[in-house]
Amino acid sequence: MTDAASPGVDTRDGFAPEKRQGSGALRLLLSNEFGLAVLIAIAFTGFALALPGFTSPFSLFTIGRQIGIDTMIGLAMMAVIVTGGLDLSVGAIGVCAAMVFGFLAQSLGVPLPLAIPGAILFGALLGFVNGYAVVRSGVHSFIITLASMSIFFGVMIFLTQAQAFNALPAEVTGLGKMRLFGKVSVLLVVTLLVCAGLGLFYRFTVLGRQMLAAGANPRAAELSGIRTGRVITACHMLTGALAALAGLMLTARTGAAVPSMAGHLGQDWLLPAFLAPVLGGTLLSGGRVSVIGTLLGAAFVTIMTSGLLLMRVGEFWILACLGLILLLAVLTDRLRQRMLRARGLI
């Protein structure tokens, strides 16, 4: 449910038949998910032994809450990577959606059950703008979203005059602080539900499987009758909606909608946006996603960051470490793919 790849289709439709399946145990041991689970266990145990307060109820709550937010950011990027695209504007979309939510909830007094979906739909609208521009222009999404990142952020700053919405309803802050069983953040639960929904979406829905097929082989997908332009646009809309949800979760954590809460132009989101899905096994070339891998990737990054911060390691060194982890993840994935191909497992 949580790991999906482009399905094998008859060669008459332009797809190559599925390769034989090898040893399930070997595939599991060589999978990103298994490796990440081991790394998470090692990192968590190490920090728990070195830092007495690392496993306190409050620490576990804050770590879980941050895992929920970082995973949602990673899922937003994963949704567009599935077709081999990129979206550098996820941070800008998330902040813009959060500011729209602040305007609706604080300035207009719109009830939360309407303001929240409104902000998410606005994020999907910005994603549609990106997708439409990519399809109509033929320019790679890297360039389009690099431009839209600045445009979205600049227009938002102009319209809001860089003023934060810091008088939101008390329920917003209450949601960010809410705990289940004294330790589990509600934001993490929301993310887990979204992960489950995405896993079902990519595995069992027509549109989800079309996204995988379009990412694996766009030309073959076109020959099969899949309208790849619409699929790419839908991917960007899904990315926009997930980025908006991440922005709302960050708003719940801080208790305010702040124009700079994702950094200048949303750049603070770029590293976690790429780290989580790439560490989790989502192929940058498209055609394969791993929802559970993205969750594990975000969990590993959050645990490492939290532990290093508690050990008073400088933030710049942490960023350097995360960048190195991303590079190693890409190189390791290439090595893993070669090993699996050599054994005829993929």
Rank of each mutant, 00 (worst) to 15 (best):
G154Y: 06
L168H: 06
L159A: 13
N166W: 05
P169I: 15
I226R: 08
G154P: 01
V194C: 06
A216Q: 08
L175A: 15
K183F: 12
L192T: 11
L212D: 01
P169H: 13
F152G: 00
Q163M: 06
A216M: 10
F152A: 04
A220W: 12
Q163T: 04
V190Y: 05
L223H: 15
G215Y: 01
F181W: 14
I157T: 13
A216N: 07
S185E: 05
T160M: 02
L180W: 13
I157A: 11
R209Q: 04
L187Q: 08
R219I: 10
G182S: 10
V186R: 06
T173H: 13
N217W: 07
F158R: 15
V172D: 04
M211R: 00
A167N: 14
I157Y: 08
I157M: 14
R209K: 07
L200C: 11
V206H: 05
I151F: 01
L200H: 08
L207F: 03
A164D: 03
L188H: 03
Q210L: 00
L188D: 01
A170K: 15
V190T: 12
V172H: 04
I157E: 07
R227A: 12
L180I: 15
T160R: 01
M178Y: 14
F152V: 06
I226N: 04
M156R: 09
L168D: 04
Q210P: 00
Q161I: 05
R219H: 15
G176I: 10
L192K: 12
A216W: 06
G174H: 11
V194A: 11
K183T: 15
Q163W: 00
R209A: 00
L212G: 00
L159W: 11
F201Y: 12
T191S: 09
L159Q: 11
F152Q: 01
G215V: 09
I151D: 00
C195S: 11
E222A: 14
L168F: 05
L212I: 06
F152K: 04
S185I: 13
F181I: 15
T205C: 04
K183C: 13
R219M: 11
F204P: 03
F153Q: 08
K177F: 12
L187E: 05
Y202C: 06
I157P: 01
L223K: 15
N217E: 06
F153R: 11
S185W: 04
V189D: 02
